[in-house]
Computed example of a mutant assay.
Amino acid sequence: MREAARRVREMAYAPYSNFKVGAALRTGAGRVVSGCNVENVAYPEGTCAEAGAIAAMVAGGETELTAIYVVADAPAPVPPCGGCRQKIAEFAGPDAVVTMATLAGDERAMSVAELLPGAFGKGHMEGA
């Protein structure tokens, strides 16, 4: 996943921030799927790398991720934004590993439960 995330990061469309991010995830079937951030001049309309990888996974017919690796050129590993944490939690179990990395090789791994404690989940929708 590390190399897939680093490769796809180079494809990121980040002309405004120049902050390229790559993400690669492993699906429940063991396939590696990747995505990169895609900016828009109207900043809120951009797409995060994690969301892109998840969309590619779903488009490929899968809905479970077992691990995800996110890389950016930053001084410290960059965690997924709040929205991406919720997107990851939608498709991953609480023990799935989220690895955050820098191009220099610094890595930090956390479980989904550690990354998003108290996540809103399917159980909250029961009875709705």
Rank of each mutant, 00 (worst) to 15 (best):
G52M: 15
P80Q: 04
G83F: 14
V71Q: 03
R31Q: 02
V58R: 12
E62K: 01
A76I: 15
V71R: 05
P44E: 14
V33M: 03
Y69T: 05
V32F: 04
G30V: 14
A76M: 15
A59D: 15
V71H: 00
P77G: 12
A55P: 06
P79G: 13
G83I: 10
S34G: 11
A53K: 02
A72C: 14
G30T: 13
V38P: 06
T27V: 03
V70K: 08
C84R: 05
V32T: 15
E39Y: 03
G35K: 07
A49S: 14
A74L: 10
G35L: 05
P80Y: 11
A53H: 05
P44S: 07
V33N: 05
Y43S: 10
D73M: 09
V38S: 12
P79A: 13
A55Q: 14
R26K: 11
P77R: 12
L65E: 07
P80S: 12
P75I: 09
G83C: 07
A49F: 11
A72Q: 12
V58G: 04
V38G: 00
E45S: 13
G35Q: 03
E64N: 09
V38H: 09
V32M: 08
I68W: 04
A56R: 11
L25H: 01
A76W: 12
V32S: 05
A55S: 12
E64T: 15
A53S: 03
G61C: 06
Y43Q: 13
A53G: 10
R31I: 11
